[in-house]
Design a protein around this nucleic acid. Structure first.
Lengths: 159, 159
DNA sequence: TCTCCTTGGGCACACCGACGCGCATCTTGG
DNA sequence: CCAAGATGCGCGTCGGTGTGCCCAAGGAGA
């Protein structure tokens, strides 16, 4: 990983405007469009940029309620973990799922329309997960930070 | 919100290929480029599409460790919440922060290079947050699901 | 110190494709 | 039966993108 300030500036800008043209980016970064195209392609080929994706406003779809769900399994056997994970990926309302150290086995982040909708999700998605011993839900009252990329990434200039 | 299947197909595709051209999208959705351009612009103007952003591979930056941090404050006064939140947004390693119901006041998601790096973050970022009574950290051993958009969104066709 | 070589940058050009417009057609609802 | 909204086709223009070439800077070696 040897990225200079200009590479980071390109990444920072593309994190905001993924559809920016070479010329547009070149002006912001301080390069010619040729040099910028080379660097951008290198960033893609080297895997720093995984994809370009549209960010949807989930509130527009009525998904205003975020729920953190802690799940403990009946057993921590490899077979139980595999069975649980095979099913949890199918849950349409689950956006993240971590296998955790400590007492809780899994932590899920679930998006719902409201509390009543979460009751439905709990009934139709979560309670059907296999090998579950305990489910504990906490509602997010407000979201203070939501970043795709930690700001620390853009401050690690090498050259 | 009155989106038909084609609108959802457009959104689903843009969630993967934000840089797809009108022609390219039109073929996948089953529309002409003209009709697609109109619908895409409408989706942007109506706020369904918030932005187009590049997704970075954080593992390439060495950020392979995800930590869930539970934080309880000394008091739940409005002033304490405001003071805490004003500082937590400045933490460069924090990617998400929720104000929670229940016993824990806040839950943060922190990205670190490794466990030693998290110790540094704990010392230089987290322990400097104001009004904190208790900090409890859990490490994510593995990530099973990581979606930007719940799949349920793309299944709600109206027309 | 001089020279060679490599790496990255900029300029100019040409090609290809995207984009937006106008108009005719079709469907949907009243 | 009519009106309004949506679609598709064709076209022209504009802009982006990629290539080739030359230049500047820095490092290595004789």
């Amino acid at each position: 990983m040897d990225l200079d300030r200009k590479d980071l500036a390109i990444l920072a800008e593309l994190t905001t405007n993924a559809r920016a043209s070479h010329t547009e980016l070149a002006n912001k970064v301080g390069l010619s469009s040729t040099a910028l195209a080379r660097r951008q392609k290198a960033l893609e080929d080297d895997g720093y940029i995984q994809a370009y994706q549209a960010a949807l406003d989930l509130a527009q779809f009525g998904l205003t309620t975020t729920v953190l769900v802690r799940i403990a399994l009946e057993s921590q056997s490899d077979e139980a973990l595999k069975a649980f994970e095979a099913e949890v990926v199918k849950c349409p309302s689950v956006v993240r799922c971590f296998l955790m150290s400590g007492t809780d086995d899994y932590i899920l982040i679930v998006l719902a329309r409201d509390i009543q909708d979460f009751e439905r999700i709990h009934r139709t998605e979560l309670s059907r997960l296999p090998r579950v011993a305990r489910v504990q839900s906490s509602f997010a009252l407000r979201e203070i930070v939501n970043r795709a990329v930690p700001t620390v990434v853009f401050g690690e200039a090498k050259r």
